[in-house]
Every structure is written in C-alpha cells, then in structure tokens.
Design a protein around this nucleic acid. Sequence first.
DNA 1: AAGAGCTACAACCGCGAGCCA
DNA 2: CTGGCTCGCGGTTGTAGCTCT
Length: 432
Amino acid sequence: MGRSASGWCDEKSSLVKKGPWTPEEDEKLVEYIKRYGHGSWRALPKLAGLNRCGKSCRLRWTNYLRPNIKRGNFSQEEEQTIINLHALVGNKWSAIANNLPGRTDNEIKNFWNTHLKKKLLQMGIDPVTQRPITANNSDNNIHHLYYLMINHILSSLAPQLLASSSFSGTCGSLANNNLIMNMNPWGINNNADLMRLHYFDAKIQVLRNILVQQFLSSTNTPNVEATFNYLLPSYSSSSVHDHIDHEYSRVNINHNNYSPHLQGFSNGGAPIGFVPQNPTHASAQPSNLNSNISSLLKALHELDHSQPPRAPPVLVPSSGSGKSDKLLGYDDHAPFFSSTTGSNKICTNNNNNRDRSSSSYATPTDDHDQLPLLVSSAAPSPESSAANPTVDNSISNTTYSTTFEAWGNPPDPMDHDDEATNHSYWKDIIME
DNA sequence: AAGAGCTACAACCGCGAGCCA
DNA sequence: CTGGCTCGCGGTTGTAGCTCT
C-alpha cells in the first residue's frame, strides 16, 4: 500500500511535483547520477534532494539529460531509417531507437506521430497498413494484391543482396534500405557481382514496368512513384541509376546486349499472360488479376530456381591504374563461381546453403544452362496459371501488412523453409 | 492585438516482463 | 510457485509556442 507498482507516485504523493522540469531540478539529477549512478530509481529522488517520483526522474534522465542524446532535427537518413524500420517492426520504438544512436524511443515516437505519419499519407501510403491508399475499396483490394507482389519481389531480393560479397551488411544498412548504395560500394569486383547486378536490375525493371502498366492505366491511381520510392527509395534516386550505368560502362558492356536471356526480363516488363489492369476496361476482372499474379510468380519462380547461367565473360582487371576492367570472354570455370556451397541455384531466395557472409552462393553447372526467359514460350497461359490453386491461394490469402512480413512468409508455394528468411530471423536482426 | 486553433514535444500513465526472496 | 518490486515500453495527455483569422 502507498506505493504504485508502476513506479509512479500514488495518491498520497500529491506533494510530489509533476510537470515540466526546472533547470535546477535537472542540475540536481545530473549531478547526483554523475556522482553515484542512478541505482534504484525509486530511492534516487530522496537521495538527490528532488521532490519527484523515481519514474519521473528516470524518464527525465533517459529521454533528456543523459549524455550523447542527439537533439535537433532528424536527418534525411534518420527519417528514412525510421520509415523503413517502422515498416519492419511497427511501433517498436525502442527497437527503432536502437538503430538510431543518440535518439530516444520517445523522440522517435513523437517524430513519427507528428511528421512521418503525415508525410506517408501525402505519399499516398497508409502509415498503419503501409498500403497504398485509394478512395475505392475494390480498387484498393486490387492494388493491395499488387502491393503483395512487390513485397514478394523484394523478399527475393533482400537475401541476395545480403549475400553480396561486398555488402557490408548491418541491420542498420538493411533498415536504411539503401540496398545498393550501402554495398560499400557495390562495385563490380568479379563476374558474380556483375551477374548479381544485372539480375537485380532486371528484377527491378520488371517490377517497375508492371507497376506502371498496372497503375498508370488506372483511373483511380495510387501514387505509383511514391509507392516505388517508398519501397525502394535508394533505387529510385537517379544517382543509383547512374551508379548502375556506371558499373555497366566500367566493364565495357551494354547491359541490354549482355545476356540475351534476360532481354525479356529487363526490356519487356511483364511476363507472358500478364494483362494490364484498367478499371474502365473489361480486363479489370479478378480472374485477370489472379492470372497476372500467377504469371508473375511463375516467372519469378522459374528465374529464381533456374539453373545458373553460363558464366559471364571473364573480368580482367586492367593492368594500369585508372583504366577500366575488361570483359574478355566466357570462361566457364571462372573462379568467382565457387562450388563450395553445393548449390546449383543463383540468387535464389530459397537457398538453404546460403551464407550471408559468403560471396560464393552461386555455382556453375557443367552445361551452363542459360538463364530462362522470363517471357518464355513455355510460360503458362493465364488460364493454366490461374487454375493453379496453390499459387493463387498463396497470394490471395496472404495479408502481409509490411515488407517484413512478406520476407518471412514468401508466397511462393514452392519455397520451402528457409531459416535465414523467416519472420523471427529478420525480426531478431532488426530488434537486436 | 487578441483569441482560437494547431503543432510539437515533454511528461505522464498503466501494463507487463523479469528478477528475486 | 508466488508475490512484491523494479524497470522498460507504448499509448496518451498536457502545455508552450506558433500561426491564422
């Protein structure tokens, strides 16, 4: 009796001061903690000569007075980190704060509520559900399904990128979502890097093309660019496009001619069977939507689970400084395709042998099959794809609210358990 | 100039987990 | 095992300062 279990002052403590702290009180608190440490917060106010309850002292210290508190405006980088972490973990302010040195959970929470929420709303994104906002419910459902598709694509991208040889992967940089620029940099040091770059670029291109086809033809259009920018902000910036172009040019290749097997992927946009949706058009039917989803998933699956491509041309470092490396020709035994993992997959999201710290996550096969065409003559018809209940259910029954959830629950029914990509794995990394 | 409304942020509150006797 | 205590967390409230009318 007489004490609050929560640490706050009880009804008998009406003499205990509440409200804003005075500079004198601050000084007393800082002086005491500097000298003795905080010890028991409950006992502290009496010992420090403060007419406050312990909990008030603790909050004042942790949120305002303790050393290394960073005050002032949030930087662009911090803002992006908060947005992306919030997409991953939701209102776990302390977890978010752990990734922002000098910022307190309280400060981040306030910043979210007063600034970022509004910003996301202006971008056409619901800050709670992280879904694109539309005025029309049925349209919203369609757009949400496409949103899930985006998540699926991103879910297959993230682990590859983490596996990159030059990716200095920290949870912080993952949270920043600067999946390219944080690769320290993602310079092409070997053919595997080049392959990854091309693969990543191709997937992004198809994602963008599908989004554009889908959304820009709609009369009730969520902000496709805002959505894209939000999901992959670093890629959206022109500097990243420049970066990729630079990497291609640095090794003297025209990426459009580099791999004919990726032509359809990087140039064509949608997989076969994909029907651009337009609410004013008869094509905007649920069956078409399901077909599209199936077609896309099928294409992505084929790509992800394909045999690795013929080894790319050998990258030979230039002898002199300041000169570009050259691609001299194909060498199927190029060392960059390490065979230590025993996997025949390249860049797959389902590689149980994947080692995030290793660059050798792709291995050659003897016959060096080509990458399959995304737009393949063997691709399923919309009908046959839509008729695949497993694929359809995996999407339509899934209710991811965040990219993070999609990572943990890949809708691809042919993806099996993958500890490295399950829900708790990522959550642990972020909330570590 | 003054008051109403809005915004940003500090502080408060209650709940629950973990620890320990 | 249980109950008391402490602490951390997330939601909510209070208020100072700013803007608008």
